[in-house]
Amino acid sequence: MVAFDGRLVVLSLRIAQIVLAIIVLALTAYVANWWGGYWHSMSPSQINFLLFDAVWTLLALIYLTLVPWRFSETIAHHKFAILAVEALTTIFWFAGFVALAVFLSDRVCYGHVCSAAKAAAVFGAFGWVCFAATTAMAVMHVLRTSNRTSRNDKADPNLSVQDGV
């Protein structure tokens, strides 16, 4: 029987999160650029928010991978800080893909830019699923370690993607 390796699962999810963020970044940037060029106005806030989600995710993933790997003995590697970044990013992805899906549902939409916007909403939903999974893992770690008598507030090493914690 194969043993469960939490680090491999987290690494796989982190790679998926990076790839999905880059895809959503490219799609929403294309839609926002088209909107500004064609309509000569600001792109819709739903597109802008999903674009923000992708940029935020890339910054959050830098924190979520770099801090446990290089700064594991600092206050930045606190289990509640990890949980807060995970949860906030999950909420952002949920709000972003739902807002864009609702925006697109009552519009007459056709062409490449419409397909790109719809694809951004779908990939945003997949991004939300990935972050919901890592947030659930972070919540389980916090709940599992909340009754310990020692004052160890470090994040779970299995939530890290490096090999030797």
Score class of each variant (00 low, 15 high):
135 T>P: 04
104 L>T: 11
29 A>C: 12
58 L>S: 05
145 T>P: 01
117 A>I: 03
102 V>C: 04
132 A>E: 03
28 T>F: 07
77 H>L: 00
69 W>H: 13
157 P>M: 02
62 I>Q: 11
54 A>Y: 07
127 G>A: 10
57 T>F: 06
63 Y>T: 04
126 F>E: 03
54 A>Q: 05
46 Q>G: 04
35 W>F: 12
47 I>C: 09
79 K>S: 02
96 G>V: 05
3 A>K: 14
45 S>G: 14
156 D>P: 02
135 T>N: 03
157 P>A: 05
62 I>H: 05
152 N>T: 00
35 W>T: 12
92 F>H: 04
75 I>E: 09
41 S>L: 10
17 Q>P: 00
74 T>M: 00
160 S>R: 09
62 I>A: 15
13 L>T: 09
45 S>V: 13
143 L>V: 10
162 Q>W: 12
105 S>H: 12
134 T>A: 03
56 W>D: 09
78 H>Q: 00
98 V>C: 04
26 A>R: 07
41 S>T: 15
90 T>R: 07
62 I>K: 07
34 W>K: 05
126 F>G: 12
58 L>R: 08
125 A>R: 11
11 L>Q: 12
132 A>H: 02
52 F>L: 14
55 V>F: 13
30 Y>P: 06
141 H>G: 00
118 K>D: 10
57 T>G: 11
8 L>E: 15
112 H>F: 13
110 Y>E: 11
127 G>L: 04
98 V>S: 04
156 D>A: 13
16 A>V: 14
78 H>S: 01
164 G>H: 09
151 R>W: 00
79 K>Y: 04
97 F>E: 10
77 H>I: 02
150 S>D: 15
155 A>F: 01
159 L>E: 03
121 A>W: 06
9 V>Y: 11
161 V>K: 05
113 V>G: 05
115 S>M: 11
37 G>I: 00
145 T>I: 01
6 G>S: 13
144 R>V: 04
157 P>H: 02
66 L>F: 15
92 F>T: 15
45 S>R: 12
